[in-house]
Amino acid sequence: MARRVGAALRDALSGKRAGRPMADGKVRGTLLSPWRLRVFSAVTHHPCMGSGEISSISGMAPHSVRWHLRMLEEQGLVAPLPGTRGRYAATGQLRDEDRLRLEPMAGQGARRLFLAVAGSPGMTTGDAAEAAKATRQAAASKLKGMARAGLLYSVRDGKVLRHFQSEGMLRAAEDYSAHGRKYLDFFVHKVAESGISARASQVTAAWAQLELSAGRRKTTVRLGINPYITILKDNNYM
């Protein structure tokens, strides 16, 4: 069931009753809400997503997703990406170079295109568009963006362009792993400031399973710690 207006209103007011200001940069107990964690998990797995895509992945209503993003932003856990229309990334997760690489991969359509090319090197724009169920025009624009970010390269073959995966994505995945661990530590410390303890029960190259607890409330969240691997593995993290 999608998150409802009543629960959102209760969350908004419960923060005030606890006497905590809304934008103090600390994480409130309401982070333990499963719906909010669902949104947060989605953002950490695929940075640069907008509310529409999170909604379609999570099955939550778009207005509900927007509400949780705003609350997560006030809690200092996510931040909107400047110059984009409503795209978010987890605070501290992306370095400048990651943002340049990952922005062209925002959206399920873009990732489908990338994976189609990675799976069939030398694919033409038309074939990639068909494989990713995108229009040719949209596919051409997205593939161009990925090429500019160094994730693909394109070679002209007569009248068509053929696309190949470059080593950029693989190198970025490898290079990011140490930063991903740092981000995990950052998150654990950030929530600890508000009395939420986080303990990793399982850590893979792409994600970490965390057990969160505050008083008697306990829950788990899967945190994305390497968005490049998530894309390469076409990880269905939800």
Binding site: M1, R10, K16, R17
Partner: peptide
């Protein structure tokens, strides 16, 4: 199942909420 939500708040908390947060809450919902 959260079809019905009870919110108990003090008058002061609720009036603070109205002044500071109600517009953005309403725009979301």
């Amino acid at each position: 199942n959260e079809q019905l939500v009870f919110i108990d708040a003090s008058g002061r908390d609720f009036s603070d909420f109205i002044k500071k947060e109600l517009p953005s809450f309403v725009s979301e919902w």
